[in-house]
Amino acid sequence: MFAYVVRRIFVGAIMLVVMSLVTYLLFFAAPSDPARFTCGKNCSPELIEQNRKALGYDKPVFVQYGQFLKGVFVGREFPDDPELKKSAPETIAECPAPCLGYSPLQSDTVSSLIATAAPVSISLALAAFILWMVLGISGGVIAALYKGRLIDRALVGSALIVYSFPTFFIGLSLYIFVAIKWQLTPIPVYTSISDGGIGPWLYGLFLPSLTLALIYIAGYIRLTRAFVLESMGEDYIRTARAKGLTQRRILGKHTMRAALTPIATVAGLDLGGLLAGAIITETVFNYNGLGKLAVQAATTYDLPTTVGIVIVAATFIITANIVVDVLYAVIDPRVKYS
């Protein structure tokens, strides 16, 4: 087991390095000019050249990648301009390890931008996660218990219908109608716990997390329903029923335990992906999390920030994969890893 975990982490780390290289090449070796995107709209050719040097874009892309890696492990300084370092050291931005670069468009280090945005995305992901797990699993169990009846069809059907609408349509409809026109909820604004306490934090999260949850619920209802039905057909459940155990007891003690393992696997992976930001939901609700930061970076060609977020997102996904596999092994004794 221990050897397995170590191996997975090792492979995961290698994958991250390879991915960061691929990402770096995709963005910085593309025929477009990264220096062009460093100074907004009224860039003079001279200024572009200056920035190219200051940010190291004049060096071969592999050298740049080497510097990037160096930044990740030991930190860097921006701009890399010896003259400026000597004459005006106060203008040099320190970027301590793990340094993911410096965004000239946001005048800040990428790590600090990500650190500011991450709590928003994590709050949103967790709130949505709780909502969809609770609603999805209970919906799925109910549907399974009433298999084939109206309530089953209504649950599965309505979840599927909601799922069929694009996220931004659902999000905008909720925002415009529920929050603004009917004023059933406060205007969704993210308030951190340190700023406003738990209450405002939760209020603000309600509509965005509901939007996000609505997309996932359909999948979880179906998944739960399928697993519950499947395990209800298993021999040991039949045995339990034959023993005269009540439906509730069978469901609680046996069926759910069997069904929850695969659901937890899927849920873990979904959560891992969401932690890196829900691009559309954050954009719709103007939540300044990683997703919106990513959109802002992508649409302004803020390459260092984009690369940074891609790598952070990949880290979340890879980590979630490892965690889920390891947990799976712990929960389900049948799974053995050599």
């Binding site: 691009i279 997102a313 996904i317």
Partner: peptide, 18 residues
């Protein structure tokens, strides 16, 4: 494994210009 680890929406958006 690697392609599955990319944040796809973000990649779609960020790569579009180039």
């Amino acid at each position: 494994d690697m392609v599955l680890s990319f944040p796809v929406t973000l990649m779609l958006l960020a790569l579009s210009g180039m």
